[in-house]
Design a protein around this nucleic acid. Sequence first.
DNA 1: AATCTTTTCAACCGCCGGGAC
DNA 2: CGTCCCGGCGGTTGAAAAGAT
Length: 235
Amino acid sequence: MSMVQNLGWGVIEGGWRKGPWTAEEDRLLIQYVKLYGEGRWNNVTRLIGLKRNGKSCRLRWVNYLRPDLKRGQITPHEESIILELHARWGNRWSTIARSLPGRTDNEIKNYWRTHFKKKGEASSGNPEKWRAHLLRRQQFHLQQQEKQEENQINMNKVVSLLDESENRVPTLAQMKKEIIYQDTSDDLGFIYSMINGNATGPEASTEDILWEWLWNLDDFHENITNQHTSVANFH
DNA sequence: AATCTTTTCAACCGCCGGGAC
DNA sequence: CGTCCCGGCGGTTGAAAAGAT
């Protein structure tokens, strides 16, 4: 096996790079898609000079770089869809993924395996862990709600600004920038501080009630997001 | 603070089906 | 026909992150 120059992670094997992608490699792949579109992945090396085989490039694009990907934690709503469709289809991850816009089969597969694979991991066998899981998510979504309310306030500012000054484009662009910045700030540190602080769970409340509550939060979140999008598109 | 254990998830692999030649 | 190439799928891996001791 003289072709293999290094068995370690992220180094050259037989002329192709493998392992985790660098920012520069991502840049090149994005450049490729911009110039030549998605597909024909084995042309990437020839046309852009990225030393990755076609399969690796495709995977990186569809699972990570695609701009229509929805990042961040799986929502309770999404989780319920995953559970429902998995019950119906089994491990047909790509089929399931088609019902979850912005989520990849890989992501769903990982999620299901880590949360529901082992018998009783979360659901029946290990109530403490399951409750901790629900609590963590509950706190997350509460925080999410606060963030969205903040954004709502900013959005109102934008709207009133729009009303006042008919054609002040630069000001509006500035506000948009501000909102987008807040929207994408992805600091999860608060979750842990909240858990450490007052982590006495929703004691004997039945799961069903909690679920319903989480669903409402989720719907609220989606509402706000949609409003935000429609304003952002209105420039 | 240090080390050992567990979990997560990005990226790999082999396999397969479809289309081009 | 065959066979070669590509892309898509699902299972698996192991480095890094998180958690436990």
